Computed example of a mutant assay.
Amino acid sequence: MIDSASMVQVAALGLGGLAVLGSIALIIAALVQITRAFHLHEAARASWALAVICAPVFGAVAWFAVGNRIDAD
């Protein structure tokens, strides 16, 4: 029989795994959108990709919050 402490550990491990998978999906989605953002100059796309790679979760969230809405001339 599984005790309650083991059940809590399994639940925490499962939630942690979901958080990691969600973060990876967010990062991949941001990188795909950055590569397809032809309205941005090449240097801007490279900067955004570097931001997502160097600060993965923060960079991806920043891309979806700000970067995706920038109109380049």
Rank of each mutant, 00 (worst) to 15 (best):
M1P: 12
D3Y: 06
D3M: 07
S4D: 13
S4V: 13
S4A: 15
S4H: 11
A5H: 08
S6M: 12
M7P: 00
M7F: 06
M7Y: 09
V8Y: 11
V8Q: 13
V8E: 15
V8C: 01
V8L: 15
Q9A: 15
Q9W: 06
Q9C: 10
A11P: 04
A11W: 07
A12T: 08
A12N: 14
A12Y: 05
L13R: 12
L13Y: 07
L13D: 12
L13Q: 11
L13H: 08
L13F: 11
G14H: 07
G14A: 12
G14E: 14
G14L: 09
L15N: 14
L15T: 03
G16M: 10
G16S: 14
G17M: 04
G17N: 11
G17W: 06
G17H: 06
A19L: 08
V20N: 06
V20I: 14
V20C: 08
L21K: 09
L21M: 15
L21I: 15
L21V: 14
G22H: 09
G22K: 07
S23I: 01
I24Y: 09
I24Q: 12
A25I: 01
L26K: 10
L26D: 01
I27Q: 04
I28N: 03
A29D: 13
A29G: 05
A30H: 04
A30Y: 03
L31I: 03
L31C: 00
L31T: 01
L31H: 01
V32E: 05
V32F: 06
V32N: 07
Q33G: 09
Q33F: 04
Q33C: 06
I34Y: 01
T35V: 07
R36Q: 14
R36I: 02
A37S: 15
A37M: 01
F38E: 14
F38L: 14
H39S: 14
H39E: 12
H39V: 05
H39G: 12
L40E: 04
H41W: 05
H41N: 07
A43M: 05
A43K: 09
A43H: 10
R45K: 13
R45F: 00
A46K: 02
A46V: 02
S47A: 08
S47C: 03
S47G: 12
W48H: 06
A49D: 00
A49V: 00
L50T: 04
L50A: 09
L50M: 08
V52T: 01
V52I: 05
V52G: 00
A55E: 04
A55G: 09
A55R: 08
P56R: 01
V57G: 03
F58E: 06
F58V: 08
G59E: 09
G59R: 05
G59A: 02
G59Y: 03
V61N: 01
V61T: 15
A62G: 07
A62Y: 03
A62T: 13
A65S: 10
V66G: 10
G67D: 02
G67N: 02
N68M: 15
N68H: 12
I70C: 11
D71H: 14
D71G: 08
D73A: 15
